[in-house]
Design a protein around this nucleic acid. Structure first.
Length: 560
RNA sequence: UGGGGCAUGGUGCAAUGGCAGCACACCGGACUUUGAAUCCGUGGAUCUAGGUUCGAAUCCUGGUGCCCCAGCCA
């Protein structure tokens, strides 16, 4: 299933190697990928996903899919399904090991009972504000709750009645009895259960108490026999608690390992913010091509191999870093450059009329699909006649220095066809350019001159007789103007959304062979970048295309 | 200012006491039926101050900078 074997050699594999050497887990490697089903997976999740699946695979181990669904008010089945699709798209599979933290609610409840019996958990009646106030600050220790030393029997009774639904939301919590003066705030009697009369997407109304992350995660790992539980750096402070619960319970003890999450320039990695964008209608859902979600990238035609390669290139370490999005785009282009078929497509059409080419004549050229690959024999027929479309910026009436394309009196090659020389212009009443007239040299058929003369420029074209009209969407990823991490949430954040990110080109001309494009396939439009057909059809019945990614434009750079 | 982490070219990642290397970006050149790609090449880094050592990015000590933690979120 996995398309590319990535071999990791990093601090995580070193830890695993040490475990294997010491025999701590009997040579077993079993990881889990634990998303919360409260949104779509984005490129940032791909790092954790690859770390969990690829590293386990590297050791011949297994990876479970486990939904961390302990907060019913934020979660939904829509996301459960979308997450599965994205994992499969990247080429990973969890077999029959699809689990949910909610599967363990009963076991976790029993474990909580055990903690109470061991005198290590108590029912607290402090309000939210009081609890915060008792917790202390970063520099001052907390104070014990007045309910902390309740008798064990009373705790048992109260906790059972919490489950039975006798108390309103927020009125009571179950807390671990650890140390209110710990320098690690997570150890200051953390909440294990809160009362929440909410309908859960899987357990319905069966429960009205829900476990907190810290109480659920480690035990879920333990129940599943997870050996290496990878998570992001912010959980380092939680590891002592993760270990403490498991030690007190006396159950199988997995190893939590933390690494830095992925940051990419010009890319929002906050699920909260992405949700805001979706909910406020700035985009067309989570799979909108402007979104940094895996679904959005898939729709744009990013190959999954490129994402895997990107994660492997970026590496997994504890350094917090900002990766330049140029690297991702480079890898996408690199992958697509080999796999995508070349096509000629004109985005901004300008009529080119060949004065000395017979009216009514059409000839066919067999054009290579992979001109870079000498082995490939794959071709498609392309028609050529007297009137063609060329790119508007492939002609300049008054050329600037070093302009190699068409200009009055100058000869260029029509790609795969003939040399032509511009001989005249057709202009409208306001002086706007309507068409360019040229003459062709019949001795240059196929694009090479019999006399060996060379031309500096080669331009692409589309036969006007057979051209397809298409609508082309040049989506840009959102927020190119700011690092979203710097922007606070809400109003200020949404003001920075790039509203021009959905440029539509309505009258593009495509070569006829693109009529039978395959959905999901990416084509390289000569000099315009990579494009993929979108499933949407516009009102005129014209096919629509999305730009996957642009080409590096050295000409634009020269102009600067 | 309590606790936990992290510091290597512009960016990201290696080097685990022995010549600081790779990729992207940048710059220069060659080639080209995509001004793309490809190929060749240049420049540029160990946060800081001491110490140990024949030898330190690596070990020790002090300092500095950045990130995380005070949800009944995960």
């Amino acid at each position: 299933m996995i398309k590319k074997g990535i071999i990791f050699d990093n601090f995580i594999t070193q830890i695993i190697d040490e475990h294997n050497a010491s025999g701590r887990f009997g040579g077993r490697v079993h990881t889990r990928f634990p998303p919360e089903p409260n949104g779509y997976l984005h490129i940032g999740h791909a790092k954790a996903l690859v770390a969990d699946f690829a590293i386990a695979e590297q050791y011949g181990g297994l990876t479970n899919l486990r939904y961390d669904d302990t907060n019913p008010v934020k979660e939904d089945v829509e996301f459960v399904d979308a997450i599965k699709e994205d994992i499969h798209w990247l080429g990973f599979d969890w077999g029959d090991r699809e689990y949910y933290a909610s599967d363990y609610f009963e076991q976790l409840y029993e474990m909580a009972l055990q903690m109470i019996r061991q005198g290590q958990a108590y029912v607290d009646e402090l309000s939210g504000d009081e609890l915060r106030e008792h917790r202390g600050t970063l520099t001052e220790p907390g104070r014990n709750s007045p309910w902390r030393d309740r008798p064990m029997e009373e705790n048992l009774d109260l906790f059972e009645r919490m489950r039975a639904g006798e108390f309103p939301d927020g009125s009571k919590t179950l807390r671990a009895k650890i140390d209110m003066s710990s320098p690690n705030i997570n150890m200051r009697d953390p909440v294990m259960y809160r009362i929440l009369h909410a309908t859960h997407h899987r357990t319905g109304d069966q429960w009205c108490i829900y476990p907190m992350y810290d109480w659920a995660h480690g035990q879920s790992d333990s129940i599943e026999g997870i050996t290496h539980s990878m998570c992001s750096l912010e959980y380092e402070n939680h590891r002592p608690l993760y270990d403490w619960f498991i030690e007190q319970l006396g159950i199988f003890h997995p190893q939590q390992i933390e690494f830095a999450r992925l940051n990419i320039t010009h890319t929002v990695m906050s699920k909260r913010k992405l949700r805001l964008i979706v909910e406020q209608g700035f985009v067309d859902g989570w799979a909108d091509p402007r979104m940094p979600t895996l679904a959005g990238m898939r729709r744009r035609g990013y190959p999954p191999e490129a994402i895997l390669e990107f994660i492997a290139t970026v590496g997994i370490a504890k350094n917090e870093s900002f990766v330049d999005i140029e690297l991702l785009e480079h890898i996408v282009r690199d992958e697509l450059n080999l796999s995508s078929k070349r096509r000629m497509a004109v985005l901004q059409p300008l009529k080119l009329i060949i004065d000395n080419y017979p009216e009514g004549k059409t000839e066919m050229f067999d054009v290579k699909d992979f001109p870079q690959d000498p082995e490939s024999m794959s071709t498609r027929p392309v028609s050529f006649s007297r009137e063609l479309w060329i790119e508007r910026d492939d002609f300049m009436e008054e050329p600037v220095p070093k302009y190699h394309r068409l200009s009055p009196g100058k000869e260029v090659r029509l790609m795969n066809a003939y040399f032509v020389r511009a001989v005249g212009l057709e202009k409208g009443p306001d002086g706007e350019l309507l068409a360019v007239h040229c003459t062709y040299d019949p001795e240059t058929r196929g694009g090479n001159a019999a006399d060996g003369r060379k031309v500096k420029g080669t331009i692409h074209w589309v036969d006007s007789k057979t051209a397809l009209d298409a609508e082309v969407h040049l989506y840009e990823q959102l927020f190119p103007d700011a690092y979203p991490e710097d922007l606070p949430e809400g109003e200020v954040f949404t003001q920075h959304i790039n509203r021009d990110s959905k440029l539509v080109i309505g009258n593009a001309k495509l070569e006829a062979s693109l009529a039978d494009q395959k959905p999901g396939e990416v084509y390289q439009f000569v000099r315009n970048g990579y494009f993929t057909p979108d499933s949407a059809i516009d009102q005129d019945g014209k096919p629509t295309w999305l730009r996957t990614i642009g080409l590096v434009d050295t000409w634009a750079k020269m102009q600067k």
